[in-house]
């Protein structure tokens, strides 16, 4: 599996309220959630994001509440993978469980800037920054995690076993 897109870069401790503000949690329709994704720190995100784009962020991405709405909103917005230094534990689980690819890689986060074009190879864990012509080594995904992501989440994946 390969992801390829333009980077939206954010800082440390991006919490679930930033990803999807609690005031929009009265809906659970992914498209409606995605429409408000990141709006409190980047109101143009949803206007500019294209299918396949990538979020890069610092430490503790997804901290705060345990809402699954957060990774759902990011995925529905078209993001193909999130690369951060670390994730909040529950966000990490929720992301994989709903089929959103996430990676941890300090080097990539330090090297990549907003707007860079980046390619991620999930089999090898290689992250290529096309804009800067740099290569970073992230962890690869074991095949079953790739299968979970391809199936659209843990439950659809389990149904195929």
């Amino acid at each position: 599996m390969i992801a390829n897109g333009r980077v939206f870069k954010y800082g440390d401790n991006i919490d679930t309220d930033v990803i999807i503000p609690a005031r929009y949690l009265n809906v659970s329709e992914p498209a409606e959630l995605a429409a408000h994704c990141m709006e409190d720190i980047d109101k143009d995100f949803i206007k500019n994001v294209k299918e396949g784009d990538i979020i890069v962020a610092g430490k503790n991405f997804g901290c705060g509440s345990s809402r699954e709405h957060a990774p759902i909103a990011i995925k529905k917005a078209g993001i193909s993978v999130v690369i951060a230094k670390t994730y909040a534990r529950i966000f990490y689980r929720n992301a994989i469980n709903i089929g959103l690819a996430i990676m941890e890689c300090d080097e990539a986060v330090d090297g990549i800037d907003d707007g860079d074009m980046v390619t991620v190879d999930f089999d090898t864990g290689i992250i290529k920054n096309q804009t800067k012509n740099q290569i970073y080594k992230g962890q690869s995904f074991p095949p079953f995690i790739q299968d979970i992501i391809k199936s659209g989440g843990l439950l659809p994946y389990m149904s195929t076993l």
Binding site: E68, R93, I96, N97, I145, L154, L155, M158, L161
Partner: peptide, 19 residues
């Protein structure tokens, strides 16, 4: 401890993923 989606998947196949 895990979430309700994990519980559902666990009940289905008796497996789940861990880091």
């Amino acid at each position: 401890g895990i979430g309700s989606t994990d519980m559902a998947a666990g009940m289905m196949k008796g497996k789940t993923w861990f880091k």
